[in-house]
Design a protein around this nucleic acid. Structure first.
Length: 277
DNA sequence: AGCTACTCCTGGTAGC
DNA sequence: TGCTACCAGGAGTAGC
């Protein structure tokens, strides 16, 4: 599923195809994708606007728009199955297309989303749309010291806490499982019971995992995530635990176990990540 | 505060 | 073979 590395990859690859173009028309095929904004308001805010920049915050894509001295932002979230494609306007329609923006260079930016959970919301500024978000794990705010204190102030299981976007923004199911395995921490371990030395390992593992995954353009394994080029990512070949239930642990050889933690499918090596208490 | 359950969706697949 | 039932999951929300 698209997490921080996938969204970052998409943003980087969209920029040269979209920034500097003007939106010449819109087609909305699934209203709920607009997140409560009416088709009329969406069209009025977007058509004629130039895309000045594309940014990422957590798992959100932010398209900065500008028209007639007025700034707007399109806030996109891919959720489970969203994708952005850039295709010639007269190409065959994309299957599962939900919203299409025609661009001034003859191409179209298409928001494709099989499961319809994704959103593309128009707002005056992103503060109106974005929920409270924790620090960026690859940013300067995410220091080891902040992390140690923040974990100590909570008494939650590590996995649900790391998935909580208001605590730390950008991790999802895959990269949490990978980072916890690398740190030899069980996902059910209580956040305030992780020794400082192990917090340092987890902090480094989170950053290294995300950076490595960005370098490999994210993870693809079920046909959902593709880059705007239509290419799969390559980080799935690096998975140590995710999706490897029944396969041998690459560290110790024991079979990887799948369990449910906080309603999420979770992959662990029970020897490398001993169950707490 | 933190947990669980439910909702939104559909394609893929396990099971019969 | 063909059908049905269930599952995956990010995040918002409600209830305990």
């Amino acid at each position: 599923m698209p997490e921080l590395p996938e969204v970052e990859t998409i943003v980087r690859l969209l920029r040269p195809k979209v920034v500097g173009r003007t939106v010449t028309g819109v087609h909305v095929e699934w209203m709920r994708t607009l997140g409560g904004v009416s088709k009329r308001r969406f069209r009025a805010g977007v058509v004629g606007a130039e895309v000045l920049a594309i940014r990422r915050r957590a798992k959100y894509l932010l398209f900065d728009l500008h028209r007639g001295g007025r700034a707007r932002v399109l806030v996109g979230h891919l959720r489970m199955s969203g994708r952005f494609h850039v295709v010639p306007q007269h190409a065959d329609p994309e299957p599962w297309s939900r919203v299409r923006l025609d661009l001034s260079d003859g191409y179209a930016l298409v928001f494709v989303d099989v499961r319809k959970f994704g959103r593309l919301v128009l707002a005056k500024d992103e503060g109106q749309v974005l929920p409270p978000l924790g620090p960026e794990p690859l940013g300067a705010d995410f220091t080891e010291e902040w992390f140690r204190q923040a974990l100590g102030q909570r008494r939650r299981m590590l996995k649900p806490l790391l998935l909580d976007q208001s605590f730390l923004a950008g991790l999802g199911n895959i990269y949490v499982d990978e980072a916890l395995f690398q740190s030899r921490l069980h996902p059910r371990r209580r956040s305030d019971r992780v020794p400082a030395a192990r917090v340092a390992v987890l902090h480094a593992a989170i950053r290294a995992t995300l950076a490595d995954a960005i370098e490999r353009e994210g993870s693809s394994f079920d046909g959902f995530y593709r880059t705007p080029e239509g290419q799969p990512g390559r980080y799935q070949h690096q998975f140590l635990v995710y999706g490897r239930a029944g396969d041998p642990c690459r560290r110790c050889g024991r079979k990887i176990t799948k369990l449910v933690v906080g309603q999420r499918g979770t992959h662990v090596c029970t020897r490398c990540q001993p169950v707490p208490r």
